[in-house]
């Protein structure tokens, strides 16, 4: 076996693209959640991160943001190490990762997207509130601005999270399961917001679990099953063969037929 050279010590010189992962692995308690993933997001793409439960989709997003430690490899955001690049990234965490009984209104949560711009110690002022109200309007939630977040439906909570990410006014957006448990109306609002972001030249990565809608929603895909099974334009990677490999042969022929791949 011939020795291989890995460019691990100077990632910045080789990182092209808004999000690059090279040999990225994440290990929890000795078990790999993500294994040796290479991926480059094309600028301006709407990328679906797709795969079965436990495929490492969330771990991939968190690892590129530097929120979980890397077992190997590296990642860059907008050409910088995550620690620096992430300040210019909009992030939508999983809805279940926070306590929705927290005493806050929808407006309070969206305003958090402006905190970085406000800077240390500066309180949320009227101008910030007005800007947050505009972000809520973009996701059709203007009427719910003063509603406590615990009284919103799942889809409405997800829209609030999206509005908070819009407030960050980023070049790259990373969204963890924004479509999970949302109603049809919210799903339409979310997808049109994603398309607006793409039209504005932003790059968007979305963790997505619904194979039915994936080809309609995204033009690129990263198919994960702990390792990267495939990545590229949707038409090339969303094939029966690749999906069967990612899902370990668990997709029934009828399911694949329904996907028309």
């Amino acid at each position: 076996m011939s020795p291989q050279i890995h460019l691990v010590d100077r990632p910045l010189s080789v990182a092209q693209g808004p999000l690059v992962a090279h040999g990225l692995s994440v290990v929890y308690d000795g078990k790999p959640a993500l294994w040796n993933v290479d991926f480059t997001a094309p600028a301006g793409a709407l990328v679906g991160v797709i795969g079965p439960n436990g495929a490492g989709k969330s771990s991939f997003i968190k690892a590129t943001l530097g929120l979980v430690p890397w077992a190997s490899g590296w990642a860059t955001l907008l050409g910088e190490a995550p620690k620096h690049g992430r300040a210019r990234v909009g992030y939508v965490p999983q809805r279940a990762s926070v306590d929705w009984d927290f005493p806050a209104s929808a407006l309070d949560v969206v305003a958090m997207g402006f905190y970085r711009k406000l800077g240390w110690l500066r309180p949320v002022n009227r101008r910030t509130k007005d800007a947050a109200r505009e972000c809520l309007e973009q996701v059709g939630m203007a009427d719910f601005a003063d509603r406590p977040i615990g009284q919103l439906s799942g889809g409405q909570q997800q829209r609030v999270f999206l509005a908070r990410a819009l407030a960050q006014d980023a070049e790259l957006y990373l969204m963890d399961e924004p479509f999970a448990g949302v109603d049809a109306a919210s799903e339409q609002v979310l997808i049109s917001a994603l398309r607006d972001l793409q039209a504005a030249g932003k790059t968007v990565l979305v963790v997505h679990h619904d194979l039915q809608t994936a080809p309609d929603y995204f033009d690129h895909a990263l198919i994960l099953a702990t390792r990267a099974v495939a990545s590229g334009p949707m038409a090339e990677v969303f094939t029966a063969e690749i999906l069967q490999e990612a899902y370990g042969g668990r997709l029934a022929p009828s399911q694949l037929a329904a996907l028309a791949v």
């Binding site: 929120l67 990234v89 992030y91 965490p93 990762s97 958090m112 905190y115 110690l121 908070r164």
Partner: peptide
């Protein structure tokens, strides 16, 4: 009082706070 906004952020959503650079 001075750190009210920062404390609110890390209490509600520490992952988002870290990702936003806090």
């Amino acid at each position: 009082a001075a750190f009210f906004k920062e404390l609110r952020l890390i209490s509600f959503d520490p992952d988002f706070a870290a990702a936003a650079g806090w």
